[in-house]
Nucleic acid binder design. Structure first.
Lengths: 223, 223
DNA sequence: TAGATTGTTAATCGATTAACAATC
DNA sequence: TAGATTGTTAATCGATTAACAATC
């Protein structure tokens, strides 16, 4: 087990995709080596943090020179587990589901949405990009016949829990939940939320903080 | 400045929307009081953490009884700054942009998307839900004539930086970026990313970790 | 060589968790 | 009252940052 990722901090995991995007750009430009300093500069991080993150991949660099771009790409991809493609089903073929199904970036993450399911009869038989839409009632059968590890939930909040339980009952290992609802599921199931409310809350808080600081500065000016 | 939010930890901010959803449900069911224990239980958190989070809002509870549901809702909404509606423009009327424009949950966050802009001529004049789509070339004029604080970016990665710079030049204070690209902007601009890659990276890492643990357990069994 | 960069070890910082007195 | 729950203070845990020797 040369590069397992137990113990890699979540914040580091979250920075990996940014490194990856940058590194792929460098590779496409023909750049062979890159230093932590350069990456840090480009992403607004501190060099020491980039070095720490990189060290989690097990890759070693050369003092004064830096790291081999393609080696680093491979190492990050492998550390994230993105070198093994994983099939996923999408539940919910509304606007968000449709956007997800058509999103082409998933390919480079090793994620492949193989089928979508919806309760709305009008959507059955349609295609979202390359992804066929089936009746939700066919989900169980589909999962019995196809090996799929991940379920992507893009249904309204009120239906999310029920859909999640159905997925779990069918043996799904991990759920990526886009519904604005916190799911209660057995701990063996991996759940990842992508929640607009959460993201916007952080934005709101930062804006409010910034406003407060500016008000404070103005006060200071008057003194 | 009774309840400014400087010093409220970001992880706490991120949990607020989950509390809010739960509390609104309780309110609608007619529940008047709620304990930290109950919230924790429902969300899979520890009671102590919920109490710490709640204390950041300035709300006080009653021992043995808990907190007043509606008071708590108001306090969280106010702490997030969601009691003041903020206008936003959306750049990019593709599938994702369309899904965002039609998303009805934003209303309860105090976010209102007032207009969308796109370079694609075919989209001009259309409406995404209630949101009109204008030519991107009209952005500057629109922002001069309307007071808008937030820009939502839902364009392809290659165009994101350029669009962001245009928004900043027009005086936008904060940017919510859905493009898979790290923006380089002056520090005075608040930037929040909602990045599918980042979210999926965490999911992948958790799955990989889980697999490794299971493999390990199997090994243990054999010994 | 000189100097930039790596990698490691230690210090700092911030969030979570524990302990416990106060209280309804 | 007894016991559940709050709120505060202190301890723990984990990530970031600093310091610095090693190295190309």
């Amino acid at each position: 087990m040369a590069t397992d990722n137990r113990g890699i901090p979540i914040p580091t995991i979250k920075r990996f995709p940014s490194y990856l995007r940058l590194l792929k750009g460098y590779r496409d430009e023909g750049m062979e080596m890159v230093s932590a300093t350069m990456l840090a500069d480009e992403l607004g991080l501190k060099p020491i943090q980039v070095r720490k993150d990189i060290s989690c991949t097990g890759i070693e660099g050369k003092p004064k020179v830096g790291f081999t771009v393609v080696k680093l790409i491979d190492a990050i991809v492998h550390t994230l587990g993105w070198d093994n493609a994983t099939d996923a089903v999408l539940i919910g073929a509304g606007h968000l589901g449709s956007a997800l199904a058509r999103y082409e970036g998933f390919e480079s993450y090793g994620l492949k949405i193989v089928a979508a399911f919806d309760i709305d009869q009008q959507k059955w038989g349609a295609k979202l990009g390359d992804v066929p839409v089936y009746p939700l009632s066919h989900l169980q059968q589909y999962l019995e016949e196809n090996h799929v590890n991940i379920g992507v939930i893009a249904v309204p909040a009120v239906q999310a829990q029920e859909v999640a339980e159905k997925l779990v009952a069918c043996g799904i290992l991990a759920i990526w939940n886009f519904a604005p609802k916190d799911l209660k599921l057995p701990p063996r199931v991996v759940v990842q939320r992508t929640d607009l409310a959460t993201s916007f809350a952080v934005l709101s808080a930062k804006v409010k903080r910034k406003m407060a600081k500016e008000d404070l500065l103005e006060e200071d000016d008057e003194w």
